[in-house]
Simulated scan of single mutants.
Amino acid sequence: MAKEQKARGKKEQMKGKAKEATGRAVGNERMTAEGKADQMKGDARQAKEKGKDVFKH
């Protein structure tokens, strides 16, 4: 389960980066902000899962 969540976090980060880059390219500030938010969600999910791993071992 943890691997699935880590992969999901990585996917959110990549999706956010792509969305942010697209937003910058077309000059859409809202899309850029949404991309940054997606990246932050991915970062948070990754950190949560890494924290769980620390307590598992």
Rank of each mutant, 00 (worst) to 15 (best):
M1R: 12
A2W: 05
A2E: 14
K3I: 11
K3F: 07
K3G: 07
E4T: 14
E4L: 15
E4D: 15
Q5I: 02
K6D: 09
K6T: 12
K6L: 15
A7K: 15
A7G: 13
R8W: 08
G9Y: 04
G9M: 05
K10F: 09
K10N: 12
E12P: 01
E12V: 03
M14P: 02
K15A: 15
G16I: 04
G16V: 05
G16L: 07
K17P: 06
K17M: 10
A18L: 12
K19N: 13
K19H: 14
E20F: 10
E20M: 10
A21N: 11
A21D: 13
A21Q: 12
A21G: 09
T22V: 03
T22S: 06
R24P: 00
A25Y: 08
A25W: 06
A25T: 11
V26Y: 03
V26G: 00
V26T: 06
V26C: 03
G27N: 05
E29H: 15
E29Y: 13
E29M: 15
R30K: 11
R30F: 11
R30M: 07
M31W: 04
A33R: 15
E34P: 01
G35N: 01
G35Y: 02
K36Y: 08
K36Q: 09
K36N: 10
A37L: 10
A37P: 09
A37I: 05
A37M: 04
D38N: 04
D38L: 09
D38G: 03
D38F: 05
Q39M: 02
M40R: 05
K41L: 02
K41C: 03
K41Q: 05
G42W: 02
G42P: 03
D43F: 02
D43V: 00
A44R: 07
A44N: 09
A44V: 09
R45N: 09
R45Y: 03
Q46Y: 01
Q46N: 04
A47W: 01
K48H: 11
E49K: 02
E49S: 03
K50N: 13
K50T: 11
K52W: 08
K52V: 07
K52T: 07
K52N: 06
K52E: 10
K52P: 05
D53R: 15
D53W: 12
F55W: 10
K56W: 07
H57F: 12
H57L: 10
H57K: 15
